[in-house]
Design a protein around this nucleic acid. Structure first.
Ligand SMILES: [Mn+2]
Ligand SMILES: [Mn+2]
Ligand SMILES: [Mn+2]
Ligand SMILES: [Mn+2]
Lengths: 216, 216
DNA sequence: ATAATTTTTTAGACCTGTCTAAAAAATTTA
DNA sequence: TAAATTTTTTAGACAGGTCTAAAAAATTAT
């Protein structure tokens, strides 16, 4: 159907489209750790297949067909991540690279059965929504803890940074998905925040507060 | 590490080596549905990597390193087949193509956890042995039902033909792994065999009898 | 033992996906 | 708005893997 490279480009374009309406050649190159010239080559191929809208120098957007493919890859990625954590007991910081390979397994029937086997999970281990087989999901509105004021609270529901280092740090601080947090103080000097997390008090930097998301 | 193509070649050579000490270029080409010229190209690469012993015109054998890789791919293939049947409820004739893709997922930790998740199965859904992480397995000695005489019996433990058509036929006749069978009669005219399978009587052709294996 | 046939290898081409270097276009700066 | 800078595209090359056609070696038949 589509090559591995094509799938990875479509997925990257989809993710980048969440922040910008149109996605640039250089953004894609950075996301895929490749060179701008290679991206241009691939954009032509994807445009020929009518998976993206592309005018040279104007950046790209996904066509409905391209978005559908991207969402299917993302569905597979997140279902496999859920499987790895819930069934094989991996930690949430260990599963991304494996899922990067597994998301390219092609069988639709397989992924539907996997979905059923796990009781149709709605979110992956990092709080990201899992699209259904038609690509639909309700995008939960999240905001960073950094946007809270003192005495405001919320439930941890996602992360903006998916790096193992960040995820391991959060795990150690018990700042995991589903935990209720409240802001007890904000240090004026560096804008760092003191949080109440269940029975314990935790001090996080502004940087961390920006990358840790709560449900609105 | 190794490319997908290299892994498929090593696996094919391994399987072909079970029937012949040395494996020919044409045999590999047929097994992989490719051309002899392509095989020769790849054999040079695998010989350069010291994964096969290759002298031109002399056929090939796997080196210990090549065999280790082949067994690891086969381990993954069979564990995924077991997963698909036992956990996702696929039928035994549906899983091979999916496993052909899944066997190339690289993580060793993943496959060890999968093995543990399923309680270290010793055989795949077709009765083939699953190598352990070091590539060891006890090769069960099997013989075709065709080698039995009247009144002899055995337990169905494997198949020689893995095609969906054959597997579906066996399923319909209840001739599945683990079933005890006894030969009640052999028809002289065409050498077809009458079997007692639990409470029912089944009539199978010589062709089927040759491809259905019992433990010795 | 020679000829005919089959198997295997070589030669040369092509496709995908990547790269570097250089040219062209767009954007930013002054 | 002209110059400097940045972004993007083009040109040309290369590696992996495949193919067809033809040559070479091995095997089988006569
Ligand atoms: Mn991920
Ligand atoms: Mn995730
Ligand atoms: Mn199989
Ligand atoms: Mn099998």
């Amino acid at each position: 159907m589509n090559t591995l490279a094509e799938e990875n480009y479509l997925k990257s374009i989809y993710h980048l489209s969440l922040n910008d309406v149109t996605v640039s050649t250089n953004q894609i190159a950075a996301a895929l750790s490749t060179k701008a010239a290679s991206v241009t080559d691939m954009l032509k191929k994807l445009a020929d297949k009518e998976l993206i809208n592309y005018e040279k120098y104007q950046g790209v957007t996904l066509t409905p067909a391209g978005e559908k493919i991207a969402l299917h890859i993302i569905r597979k990625h997140r279902l496999w991540e859920y499987f790895l954590v819930e069934k094989l007991n991996f930690k949430w910081d260990e599963v991304h690279e494996m899922a990067e390979e597994m998301e390219h397994i092609s069988s639709v029937e397989l992924i539907d059965r996997l979905d059923k086997f796990m009781d149709h999970p709605k979110h992956d281990p990092h709080g990201d929504p899992i699209p259904d087989r038609d690509g639909n999901f309700k995008k939960h509105e999240l905001k960073p803890i950094a946007s809270l004021n003192v005495n405001e609270s919320g439930i941890i529901s996602g992360v903006r940074d998916h790096s193992p280092a960040f995820l391991q740090y959060l795990e150690k601080q018990q700042l995991t998905i589903g935990k209720k947090i409240a802001v007890t103080d904000i240090i004026e000097y560096d804008n760092s925040m003191i949080l109440q997390v269940e029975n314990t008090t935790t001090h996080i930097s502004r940087e961390v507060a920006k990358n840790l998301l709560i449900a609105i």
